[in-house]
Design a protein around this nucleic acid. Structure first.
Lengths: 194, 194, 194, 194
DNA sequence: CATGAATGAGAGTTCATTCAT
DNA sequence: GATGAATGAACTCTCATTCAT
């Protein structure tokens, strides 16, 4: 597959992402993607053999994208609170562009693959998130910024709230005010005297 | 519709619930339901014209069921902590019978209906939950059991964690230990000195 | 499947037989059969899920048909020569209605299934034919009508000639004169003084 | 077409022969051949425009090959029996390398072309075979080696047996012992006192 | 000459939905 | 009410064939 093909593959993945964000995972047909990309039926099959394959590529690209953004911003954070703030800001941005959310699609995808538990990317992502949070909280506790008996449980709790907000954003919508209020609670909770 | 027909309708709804719990919403076909119920294709159509109608009936029945259980148990709760404990116990039970969870199906269902925002039952249910929690927390604050600056935000936060746990249970699985740890945090948070 | 469905299934098998006789096995699509039967695409799938299944049904019916005809005629045969004559007459009839021959289709079918050697009906049919011939020849030898050192080899040889004629009839055509000449040789060979 | 192109064409024909022997005629796609040859899709079309064209080339080459071998061996045969023996030995060799047999493919090919009766190579080949046999038998009869009332019918009969064995080899398999037994019958029949 | 991406026709298959019984 | 055969639309997927490079 030459240089050009790689670009086309990228193009298809991007277009497909839109479709998945709009319709979820299961409702998407190869035909939908073909139409979104404005290519031929057979043409799509040169690159992907199923919506499953396509979605895996979308998730992969998504993961790469996030890494880039966050890594960059975190370089400039000085304190644990800074890191937390950057992290939450990023999450907020994500939550608000509801139109673009892959949350439902991702849940559908992994719900469907539950038989052969595969590489469950969703779990990995959740665990990573917990790890980052735990690490940050521990740092904050050490230098007196934060206050937490059980950093791991706290990290998990925050991750759960985020998970809840993601799915909520997709299914019933979520307002910026609501996000702010939730994030405030999280921060207060971390800083509060034990 | 006679007595017998009503019974049959109930029967279909129950069977359909199993199918939705197993496969989600979108993956379910009328054929699936027909096979699960072991009735004729045409027979099903006498009662329901689409999986959408079916799922609505399932949700309705579900709501009724929960009301019954909870109402009963809450009658016997004396303090706000009791109420909270009963509530969380109920949630835990729900979270652990993952096989029977309608969570994914429900999200799919409402995600799909997002165009004509309908009577979004999911939102109503979430709001109800928040209201109950808020009411309970306020009561607890008043009689000195709990400690919360912003009961509404606290209620929402708890509801979000629960939402997160529900979807997590479906997509990546959740352990009892994890549930306990989360619930402990919630209770500590409510009781903690401000 | 009710009475009517059985009739329809029979109808489909008959129509399909025509298609297989005309086009062989591999060239036949479900669409061809649908058109021949003048039913809907989905309708055909109620009865058969593949051309393979269809062809198996065709072969089955074919075997039944032959049994009937031959059994009847053989009842009236008195001597071994009579039996042989009846048998060859039947074969001749078969060979001449070239348009209706399933020979090529059958070879294609079994060639394709050679992996999991299955119940190779073609072999069974050939072996049956040999057995009948052998039995008849032996009988003829015993009562002095025929003359054969090795009845089994003779039977096989005749069966081979017939197989050759069948395939020849399909691929290059065969004349009645040619059939007569071949059958004459066979009979002379059986009767000839050793 | 340059020297190099001719070589490439030969190469393609050889590879295609393998495919046809393996899959028959109709099941073979241009894609199969492209993959077997490890050339480009477009590349194949520079030489052949369809599987039909390809198979014709395969048959042509096949005919040339046989002529060479047999001609050479027959030069050294002295008596009619020798000729017959050489011929049958050659046939036996052919029958046993079942994996390489083009028999089914050839029948499929000509069955499909039955509309525009073309140059039916299969008939020509059969007729040639009969002619050679007839010529040999006549020779044998003249010098007293063989005994045959109707050499032409005898020749045809032998050709039919061979045809039967070819198709049998492909569809149900054939053992060396069976071939020997058949050939023995043929020879005995030729030599037998009338 | 050679390549291989791209197209589009067509086959296979599944179901929602209807309707005669 | 209930049945299940029948229909047809919609999808998936595979290739023959073309064409720009």
């Amino acid at each position: 597959m030459g240089e050009k093909s790689i670009q086309k593959k990228e193009y298809i993945v991007d277009k497909a992402r839109d479709v998945f964000a709009r319709k979820g995972f299961r409702a998407v047909t190869m035909k939908d993607v073909v139409e979104e990309c404005d290519i031929s039926r057979g043409g799509l099959y040169l690159y992907f053999n199923s919506t499953r394959e396509l979605f895996e590529a979308v998730l992969e690209k998504e993961a790469d994208k996030q890494d880039e953004t966050v890594t960059q911003e975190l370089k400039e954070a000085k304190t644990a609170s800074d890191v937390m703030a950057v992290f939450l800001k990023e999450q907020k941005k994500e939550l608000l562009r509801k139109k673009d959310s892959l949350a439902i699609a991702t849940y559908e995808f992994y719900f469907e693959s539950q038989g052969p538990k595969k590489d469950n990317r969703i779990k990995k992502q959740f665990d990573d998130e917990v790890k980052v949070l735990e690490y940050t909280i521990k740092g904050g506790v050490e230098n007196g910024e934060f206050n937490a008996d059980d950093p791991k449980a706290m990290a998990r709790s925050i991750a759960m709230v985020l998970e809840g907000m993601r799915i909520t954003a997709c299914s019933m919508g979520i307002t910026e005010e609501m996000i702010n209020s939730q994030f405030l609670m999280i921060m207060k909770n971390l800083i509060k005297e034990g």
